[in-house]
Design a protein around this nucleic acid. Sequence first.
DNA 1: CTGAAAGCGCTTACAG
DNA 2: CTGAAAGCGCTTACAG
Lengths: 340, 340
Amino acid sequence: MVTLKDIAEEAHVSLMTVSNVVNGKHNKVSKEKLKEIQAILEKHHYIQNASARSLVKANSNIIAIMLRSIADENSLSSLHNARLVGSIVRQVQDLGYYAMINLVEDCESISRSIRTWRVQAAIFLGMFDDEIEQIYELCNIPMVFIDSYSKIRQLSNVGINDYKGGQLAAEYFIKKGHTRLAFVSPPNNDIGVVQQRLKGFTDVLAQHGLSLDPLHRFSVVSEADPDQVSQAVDQITRVRNEITAVFVTSDGLAASLISGLHRNGIHVPRDISMIGFDNSRISTQIYPPLTTISQDLELKARLTVDTLNHRLKNPDASAESHVLDVALVERESVLDITGL
Amino acid sequence: MVTLKDIAEEAHVSLMTVSNVVNGKHNKVSKEKLKEIQAILEKHHYIQNASARSLVKANSNIIAIMLRSIADENSLSSLHNARLVGSIVRQVQDLGYYAMINLVEDCESISRSIRTWRVQAAIFLGMFDDEIEQIYELCNIPMVFIDSYSKIRQLSNVGINDYKGGQLAAEYFIKKGHTRLAFVSPPNNDIGVVQQRLKGFTDVLAQHGLSLDPLHRFSVVSEADPDQVSQAVDQITRVRNEITAVFVTSDGLAASLISGLHRNGIHVPRDISMIGFDNSRISTQIYPPLTTISQDLELKARLTVDTLNHRLKNPDASAESHVLDVALVERESVLDITGL
DNA sequence: CTGAAAGCGCTTACAG
DNA sequence: CTGAAAGCGCTTACAG
């Protein structure tokens, strides 16, 4: 592997001069030497040793993507996470950083990999709100949490208006004549996103003198687990005559429910209407196409990485948060029953 | 940040002794000192500086995952890639390596990131066969290509029996009475996987005195692009009376086609039968549930990382390749028309 | 079992 | 504009 020293010898200059060329400090080098050194660099395909640079500069240009890993579940099997991570990696790379990806189970492992690599900034996906404070105190690097509802003030968060998402779903159902509703989500005890969507949903119901029967709230721990899904399908089937519409917090889960219900002879939207969340690709791959609450994942990824980049370039910059808008995308999974 | 030196001073021993403790060379340290040093290490939450270690050992414990990035497409928006990458990251991490993820557009960028970080091993997804030789000569580290059909002998590849997948689809269609068939895939000029599936498919047809009309082969460059998909839907719609069944090389694309055809009044399997590929989750989220060729992505990920790990632990080990089996999973997207 | 020396490849800070 | 010195935090190779 060619080093600065090798190049310096061949160019009959000091190592420092080559370093200046490599690092673009061209004003510190005479025009002739610059050209000559660049040619030699090119000829030998010189590539900087990131470890050496990282060691002396005490930073690494690595941005870590931390994915909470839940038991055996594949963290990238969710449509939302997969697309988001794909997009984040692209942004990270486009800004000249390296993307390291970590599946994390506890705070200890987060801090270990941040510190061992002197990771410069970190992005957190799927963390529980109560862990965030702990993480935040662990390492003093710029961090952005995605979709968190932690109460810590100094924290950068990029999320969406989940509350509005819930509102939109409820308003749309009501507009279409639905008053007996159900709600399906991951268990919401520790997930702010779910709590907010639920709150937006029930607040609108309340404004219309309606309410969500606790018996019509169903939870699915892992939407990748067929048993969990079919259990939810059975629960909905059992109350089919008590409800006319279901709000589901992810399109993937909604799709699974629709196909499960179909097997039980319950057709969407004929027998039950449904609204999903995310506007994932699957919402147009199924029949009926799914009415859903859309969010802009590319923008989410871009704001996340831009925020970190900004803070890395301006150490004094304070933490900033972003709340992205959501919108209802009308398709065909909700039946208009106002006429009935 | 606490260093070996700090620990050494506090323990009144040399830096070397602490290093031996940290690296588990416990036989080189007396029992008493060992305990004492471990306690101090623990107390200060010592974490090794990976850059320093990497610099002197000329390796990094980083395994790079190289994803071919195609224009604007999100490389993780494909169900297959997302799940595979999720699984690979888990395996990499479980074996004590770090996962760096790179979207690559050209060979240059591959070599740059491998060399700058002294990446120890690399995994390639979605590479074109003709680039592989070039990549292979670029860096002398263990590499595994996934789903490649490069002719280079020394190369480690982990793939599936695509040819058999094609055979299974054709045999099943024929068994169900289908003789006028279509084939939908990405453009297959440079993708071995597609070529093999097609060859398996047409070879079986030939054995039965049948053939695939070139006019019934459709290609979709990016299944994430709605325009591309609806173009394929229109093409199929136009020949609907000439065919009774379609073999599609991915479940995601099959799902999109089914829903697109549905909008054109063509129902699967009533009007057209369909077989997909991968047995992705979506195959059971749609209606009708998709008959498909299944492959084991978890195993694929495990073999990939195990192969690399083996070669890293045994520098003399030669490149090994794996071809995983596939199987047809029967669901409801193929109509039995033998009686008609 | 223990440690002093040299060096991995680079940058910072300084002197010319 | 140019370069000699020191050091980032660690490991290897060797001497005791």
